[in-house]
Design a protein around this nucleic acid. Structure first.
Length: 695
DNA sequence: GTTGGGAGAATTTTT
DNA sequence: TTCTCCCAAC
């Protein structure tokens, strides 16, 4: 029985979902059922008889891919099995694993995450003989390189364009970048950008691979197309060239990734690059009440150069005006957030119907603290993901060594965990064993042990013996055994010495083991561990928690994209924070920040709160006046109501009554709390998301 | 070469 | 507050 799409979709959505073969561009404003339409297009294709294996669905987050696949799967009673869906990075990864040799890589090439990239670049710069202060920071060099790569521009040209911002000659920068690229190649490793670059190169240069995938994918569908960069749009074009069935969905208003090379012009140029494109516009908003849309529309109207588009509300019930809340400073803001959360809970909303959104992770600190103290359950999407945490990466490196897929980096990482072994010793050994010891060979292990300082030999031999047995045990037990020995031999002690929360970290490792056991094999886990993000673990953790009402979510606006909540509390609407001062330095930065504000506002269904502190405190304890965000000032005052919470409501912290902190009548120059963390946070961790309490 | 203490800086967004 | 870097002592 076929799904009755006409009954489920409005006429425009229906047109998009059931459009005949050929290129299709769906311009979908926020909350107009974009994802729904794309899901039902997949459903339509499947029910029309297109085999799932011949459909490719590209998204920007794994979460989006998973959600869409699940929905398609249930709508078609399982027809969607075998459909390829995922981020550009993960799909490229999948293709590269199948054809790695064609590009001179082994199929089990490693993927460097941001942290690996940093250390590799740091090493390159050091090897070139620069002292840390003589050369731009490794992050700067990496981001320049990435900027060029993602725009598909020669690095030299890109450096020339950025000449004004450079502290070093292009020649020296290029030298460091070349060395970095060569080092990756020597290690048979790719970084995130390489997945895109090499994925595209594979399709362009390797006839077999190109034929295979072009033929295979009868339909290519792309979500959030406005966020594609030069590499990604070409990737789509090449894949779709054979059958010409490329369906893309996007909203130029919501392009918020141009800092990493996204080109919203891709979406405007799509019809030119794909002659015969059918264009469908979705403008009926099903999400937000009218006052929220009015505010969002008024804000985005300040941006030049967009496809003209107006969100039309379908929810005609009279909603409350968005409320602008002025507070004295970050702590008062946090207190107000708690009150607003409580008010809305009292009004009948569940915790998971409320979100607190902000520009940057660190903006969440105050609110987090206040919610924790108030006993409100919340979850937070933090900056460092589970798989990026040092102790998790230590274990992953160990696994790489055991599986024999390790490179010098992972061996060095494991060795450095031994007592009395530092960078130099580890490097010496890695060079000696040429990056890859044979864990099964006793002589190889002994040779390695000889190079170790005496203190490290006993712990190493314990681990070495287990490594020797590793290959003879079954998965996943062998992983558990290995990690147990690793912990007992020396790692537990290391955790105790280096960190304040060794037990929590050991728990993370147990969690990691459970995760690994959920995979088909250790190798399968290793091949995509770098691509797993904290968002992926979110749903799993939520399901595991099994909370009926869920939790209030704290999130950056970027990570909130594509999601919606009845109640949205947007904080830190100050000049320099939102819009971010750094972002404003870039060309078009103002526009992009405004799009980000638009995304934030359109997450709200019923109620939108816009908070802005009038004071900002600095890390050193000083403070200064914070200008109201331009995004608030440029909106007609009739579009929101104003509530002022002056210093009086912040009096409690002033007099020390703020929670159990034990107040101090602090002068303005020292607002930082001075108490010790004697309480436990009331929040939960979501997936890899850790509560990093600042004190 | 390693380790630990102390000084100084610091906060954009993500695959 | 934490992170990073630098320097002196083992």
């Amino acid at each position: 029985m076929k799904t009755d799409l006409a009954a489920l979709l409005n006429p425009e959505q229906f047109e998009a979902a059931t459009a005949p073969d050929g290129p299709l561009l769906v311009l979908a404003a926020a909350g107009t059922g974009k994802t729904r339409t794309l899901v039902y297009r997949v459903v339509h294709l499947l029910e029309r008889g297109v085999p799932a294996g011949r459909i490719l669905l590209l998204t920007f987050t794994n979460r989006a891919a998973r959600e869409m696949l699940e929905r398609a799967q249930s709508a078609t009673l399982g027809l969607a099995g075998g459909l390829w869906g995922g981020t550009f990075h993960s799909v490229a990864n999948r293709m590269l694993r199948l054809h790695a040799r064609a590009l001179g890589f082994p199929p089990d090439f490693a993927i460097l995450d941001a942290d690996d990239q940093r250390s590799l670049m740091g090493r390159v710069i050091k090897d070139l003989g620069y002292k840390p202060k003589e050369f731009p920071k490794r992050e700067v060099v990496l981001s320049l390189l990435s900027g060029a790569v993602n725009r598909n521009v020669p690095v030299a040209d890109w450096l020339e364009r950025r000449a004004a911002t450079l502290d070093e000659t292009p020649e020296k920068l290029l030298e460091a970048m070349d060395r970095y690229q060569a080092a990756k190649r020597d290690m048979h490793a790719m970084d995130f950008d390489d997945l895109l670059v090499n994925g595209l190169r594979l399709l362009r240069e390797n006839d077999e691979a190109r034929e295979r995938f072009q033929e295979r994918f009868l339909h290519v569908l792309v979500d959030e197309y406005q966020d594609t960069n030069a590499l990604q749009s070409e990737f789509v074009d090449v894949l779709g060239a054979r059958h010409g069935n490329v369906s893309v969905v996007g909203d130029d208003f919501q392009c918020i990734y141009s800092w990493r090379g996204s080109e919203y012009r891709n979406i405007m140029d799509f019809p030119e690059r794909h002659p015969g494109t059918r264009i469908v516009k979705l403008e009926r908003n099903y999400r937000s009440k009218k006052p929220i849309l009015d505010l969002a529309n008024a804000s985005i109207a300040h941006n030049p150069e967009q496809f003209p588009k107006t969100l039309r509300p379908t929810r005609e019930e009279k909603g409350a005006l968005p409320r602008l809340v002025e507070v004295s400073d970050g702590r008062a803001q946090a207190a107000r957030v708690v009150e607003l959360v409580r008010e809305n809970l009292a009004a009948g909303y569940r915790p998971d119907q409320i979100a607190v959104l902000y520009r940057a992770h660190y903006n969440a600190v105050d609110a987090q603290l206040a919610l924790a103290r108030a006993g409100v359950k919340y979850a937070i999407t933090s900056g460092t993901g589970f798989y990026e945490m040092a102790h998790v990466k230590d274990v992953v490196s160990l696994l790489r060594v055991a599986e024999g897929t390790g490179d010098g980096l992972s061996l060095a990482r494991v060795l450095r965990l031994l007592p009395a072994v530092g960078e130099a010793t580890a490097d010496k050994i890695v060079r000696k064993v040429d990056g890859l010891p044979d864990p099964e060979s006793e002589t190889s292990r002994e040779a390695l042990a000889e190079a170790l300082p005496p203190r490290a030999r006993v712990p190493w031999s314990k681990l070495g013996e287990e490594l020797g047995r590793y290959g003879h045990k079954a998965f996943p037990e062998r992983v558990g055994d290995l990690v147990d020995v690793f912990l007992d031999a020396f790692y537990r002690e290391r955790l105790r010495k280096d960190y304040e929360n060794p037990d929590e970290r050991e728990n993370d490792i147990r969690e990691l083991l459970a995760d690994i056991a959920g995979h088909e094999s250790a190798k399968a886990f290793l091949s995509d561990v770098a691509l797993l993000t904290n968002l992926d673990r979110e749903a799993a953790a939520k399901a595991a928690a099994g909370d009926a009402g869920g939790t209030v979510l704290l999130s950056t606006v970027h990570q909130a994209k594509g999601l919606e909540w009845p109640v949205v509390i947007l904080i830190w609407l100050c000049e320099g924070v939102f819009p971010s001062a750094r972002a404003l330095e870039d060309r078009g930065g103002d526009d992009e920040e405004r799009r980000l504000f638009y995304v934030a506002a359109t997450r709200a269904k019923d109620r939108l709160y816009l908070l802005h502190p009038t004071l900002r405190t600095m890390p050193d304890g000083g403070c200064f006046r914070a200008e109201t965000s331009r995004f608030l000032k440029e909106i007609p005052t009739t579009l929101y109501e104003r509530e002022s919470v002056g210093l009086d409501s912040a009096d409690d912290w002033w007099s020390g009554g703020f929670g159990a902190r034990g107040g101090r009548k602090a002068p303005v120059s020292r607002l930082g709390p001075a108490g010790e963390p004697s309480w436990r946070p009331g929040g939960i961790r979501v997936g890899g998301v850790r509560l990093n309490l600042p004190f």
